[in-house]
Nucleic acid binder design. Structure first.
Lengths: 113, 113
DNA sequence: ATTATAGTACACCTTATGGTTAACTATAAT
DNA sequence: ATTATAGTTAACCATAAGGTGTACTATAAT
């Protein structure tokens, strides 16, 4: 898989740390759409939208194709795969914790029997 | 699983968007350790370390137990499970993309045969 | 009692972030 | 040719983030 460096991870996590941007990504899972359509649910100014789009674009989470005066925005999921890969390393830690919890309750169950 | 709200996701992603903090988390996967031990690889001032620890603590990624004058820092993986859950929703999007790629190469393979 | 160590709190600085309004460019429609 | 629409750019503002040095608190060691 692609080897993203620290700075790129910074950018991706930073892009994801804003509710509006995450909502934008979610909206784009349905379908690619224009900036106007994409920004409909958000009660912020157009320049604010532009800035959010730039952040998403720079982090690689969004691409756009310009068709006339309309910018068609598309979700680019690869950085999310990178996040998934990054976080998967830690999976064992919450698993062992759940295992410990599980063992605890199993032992409790045994005692009651 | 726990239902984290938008603001908590903001905090978690924001905490993860800094190289130093991610390196701290990685260090803590080996073992829980004091602030001094934890901060050894980082060439920043002690107050800077304190700040990073606070960010990690507020996001739930780190806990500490005070033993005398030593603060023992421990990795708390639950927020990472939340990230994993959040990102898992998008898995289908990079899977379908990889599938498409796979199909493409498979078709190419057929042509060559 | 004094000194060393672990860590935080405070005040400050610089840059980044998220928002605004006003003005602009470029395409589309009348 | 004029007007409307899609979107960006520029200048500005307030607050947050990440860093610093100095001063402080609290525990441990001599």
């Amino acid at each position: 898989m692609v080897n993203y460096n620290d700075q790129q991870l910074n950018q991706i996590f930073s892009a994801l740390s804003d509710s509006t941007r995450r909502a934008m990504l979610l909206r784009l899972t349905d379908e690619a759409m224009s900036v106007a359509d994409l920004s409909k649910p958000f009660k912020i100014s157009k320049p604010a939208i532009t800035k959010h789009l730039k952040v998403l674009e720079k982090s690689g989470l969004l691409s756009r194709t310009i068709e006339g005066r309309v910018h068609r925005c598309k979700l680019e999921p690869e950085p999310l795969a990178v996040v998934s890969e990054w976080v998967s390393f830690y999976e064992k830690f919450w698993n062992t914790r759940l295992d410990a919890l599980n063992t605890y309750f199993t032992e409790e169950g045994k005692k009651k029997k």
